[in-house]
Structures are given as structure tokens and as C-alpha cells.
């Protein structure tokens, strides 16, 4: 695919307003909350309302993306939703999103799953369709109401949120210079069919899984494009916690200043498929025209998709059309563990 032929025409984010502090979760399981929060680099995480799920989050993010893009929903001819918490096992999230946006019926829709990176896989699919002129605009959404078993390490970070991206050729707020994927069969995290909560291989999720693929994806893209760390103003890596992306930055000798603006995990936790895409949205919310961003997602199982972006002159004006990530981070209401358990249907019998 020719570099820079398509880009992001609009983007939108959504984060539920409820929060639970890491210390509140730790208190229930007899753990040292401040130590866990410090170790993860995460203070609190977002919690969906009783009537929110991956579909409602995807719709809200998609509506914000449409506002930024300033296009008619009927012009979107492909919608992909990446998630590991689709409300239905059989029946697409994407068709409900398309109906709610008013993009039906001339649109192809599909749900994707690749742990936390299905949303970026959808962006690559849209890029192919747009670049080949099969469609004018395509939308990919990464959204989750992330599952974490009570008492498991995942419960401290598994949160809710999502971001939507509209890909097209004209009116771009950021041009996509190129993409590169790095994938192997690495069973670091999984959820079997019918299982309520995911399982993971503890420390195995680090070195041979997250770090190998994220670094492989980011370095592979820079090698492909002939760019170096110095060519980029911002970096975004998938954020299961704040520790992993910071360690990745150190490994690649990236100054932490280029990473910290996109570390939304500190405030909202790990929204799985929404994670790296919300980090990118945070950067697009503050970036100046002409700045370069390297974003690399990670999905357990395992793979990474890396993208090199350069922002355009249209970004500052168009992004004013919708709420930004910080607006959602600021609006928050804390809940107790008991209320959190109710919201997440963790109480038996609900």
C-alpha cells in the first residue's frame, strides 16, 4: 500500500464516569493497595454503569468520531468493532453500531477479536478498503467492558472504555504513513469459549509476549519506513498498566516525555481493546499539526499492529467538535467494591 494514501478523518472516545480506586479493590482481598497502585502505575479504573456495555460504549465513541469527521454516516461503508467483551457471542456489535449511527444498510460490518488489539486490526482492514477505492470511509472501533476475575491480578486494572476511528482519503486530521504487524502464537492470556473470565500466564505475559511483540512491531515499522526514534514526537504503546509501556520506552531508548501524554491507563485502567486507541486519542487531543506519532497495539495470543501517523492542519479545528479524553477522565464518580461488583454482575444471582 502506498504510504500516506489514507488517514484518520475523525476520531472519538468514550469512558464511563464511574471509578473504583485500586486501594478499594485491594482492601477486599487483604492486599496492600498503595503498593499495588505504585507497582502498576495505576491509581483507579473506570467502571461501566448498569446499562452500559461494549455496544453502548462503541456507539458513543463512534458518534464523537462522526462529529470530528464532519461527514454523513451514510458515507461510511465499513464498520468493524474490536472487542473481547461483545455482548453477544452470536450477533454482531457492529450492526447495532451501524444502525444507531444511521449508516445502514449500505455498509459491511463485522466484529473482530484479537484480545486487546482487534480495534487496530480493524483500522488496517479499513485502510485496505479505502486505499483500493472500494469504500470512501471505514470506521474501526476498539471498545471493551474488560473482564477480570475477582481477586485476580487483572481485576486491579480491567476497565471500560473505547475509541473509534474513521479512515478515509480526504479531510484527514492525521495521515497514516505506514503500518506493520508482528504476530506469533504465544498463549499468554486467553478466555475459553463459555468461560466468564480470562486466564493468564502471569509473568509469561511480559518478556515473550508483550515486550517481544510491541518492540517487534514498533521497531519493524521504523525499519520499514526508514525512521528512527528521533523522528517521532509521541509514542503510544498498549497499556495493560503504566509499567509495561514505560519499560518498552526504556528498551527502545525513547525519552519518557514522548510517552507520558498518552498514558491514560494511570487514570482509567486497562480498557483492553480501547487501551492503545484511547492513548492515541489523548495524543490527537493535544498534538500540533505536523507532529509524528508512533502507536503500537498489543493483543495477547499474540500480536502487535504499529502505525506511523503525521498530524495535519485540520486537526486543531476538527477536534473541537467532540469531547476529548480529558473531559471523560475528569468527570468521575467513585463507587465502592460492592457497587462495582453489582455493576459488573459479579454478584451471583444477578
Amino acid at each position: 500500500m502506498q504510504n500516506g494514501i489514507c488517514g484518520i478523518v475523525g476520531y472519538g472516545s468514550y469512558i464511563p464516569r464511574f471509578r473504583i480506586k485500586i486501594e478499594e479493590i485491594a482492601k477486599v482481598w487483604g492486599k496492600d493497595g498503595s503498593r499495588i497502585a505504585k507497582g502498576l502505575g495505576v491509581v483507579e479504573k473506570s467502571v461501566p454503569d448498569m446499562d452500559e456495555d461494549t455496544i453502548t460504549i462503541a456507539v458513543e465513541a463512534a458518534k464523537n468520531a462522526l462529529k470530528v469527521a464532519e461527514i454523513d454516516p451514510s458515507e461510511i461503508n465499513a464498520i468493524y468493532t474490536g472487542s473481547e467483551s461483545h455482548p453477544y457471542t452470536v450477533k454482531p456489535t457492529a450492526s447495532t453500531v451501524a444502525e444507531a449511527l444511521g449508516a445502514v444498510p449500505c455498509v459491511t460490518c463485522a466484529d473482530l477479536e484479537f484480545a486487546c488489539k482487534a480495534g487496530t486490526a480493524g483500522i488496517q482492514m479499513c485502510m485496505g478498503l479505502v486505499a483500493s477505492d472500494e469504500i470512501k470511509y471505514g470506521m474501526s472501533i476498539g471498545a471493551d467492558c474488560a473482564q477480570g476475575k475477582p481477586g485476580d491480578a487483572l481485576e486491579y486494572t480491567a476497565s471500560a472504555g473505547g475509541a473509534a476511528y474513521i479512515i478515509g482519503k480526504n479531510g484527514c486530521v492525521a495521515k497514516i504513513e505506514g503500518t506493520f504487524s508482528f504476530t506469533t502464537d504465544t498463549p499468554d492470556f486467553w478466555r475459553r469459549d463459555g468461560a466468564e473470565f480470562p486466564c493468564h500466564a502471569a509473568r509469561f505475559t511480559g518478556e515473550p509476549a508483550y515486550f517481544k511483540h510491541v518492540i517487534g512491531g514498533a521497531q519493524g515499522l521504523m525499519d520499514k519506513l526508514g525512521t528512527t526514534i528521533n523522528d517521532y514526537d509521541y509514542f503510544v504503546f498498549h497499556q495493560p498498566n503504566a509499567k509495561f509501556p514505560l519499560r518498552t520506552a526504556i528498551s527502545l531508548q525513547i525519552p519518557t516525555e514522548k510517552l507520558k501524554e498518552g498514558l491514560v491507563v494511570r487514570h482509567i485502567g486497562n480498557s483492553y481493546s480501547g487501551s492503545s486507541l484511547l492513548g492515541l486519542a489523548r495524543i490527537l487531543d493535544i498534538a500540533n499539526p505536523g507532529e509524528r506519532i508512533l502507536v503500537t497495539s498489543y493483543g495477547s495470543g499474540a500480536g502487535s499492529d504499529a502505525f506511523s501517523l503525521i498530524t495535519t492542519d485540520l486537526l486543531p479545528e476538527k477536534r473541537k467538535n467532540a469531547p476529548n479524553v480529558d473531559d471523560y477522565i475528569r468527570l468521575k464518580e467513585y463507587v465502592s467494591y460492592a457497587l462495582y461488583a453489582k455493576h459488573r454482575s459479579k454478584i451471583r444471582g444477578i
Partner: peptide, 20 residues
Amino acid sequence: TTFRKIIAVNKNGVIQYGYK
């Protein structure tokens, strides 16, 4: 308006979404 779940009568049924 915002887009939310309106009702899901049981765990196996269709989830009804709509405006709030």
C-alpha cells in the same frame, strides 16, 4: 440523548438498546 441498554429481560434474550 445518549445510547444505553434499555432492558434485557433474561440472560438469553435479545438486549434492547435505545435512547436515555
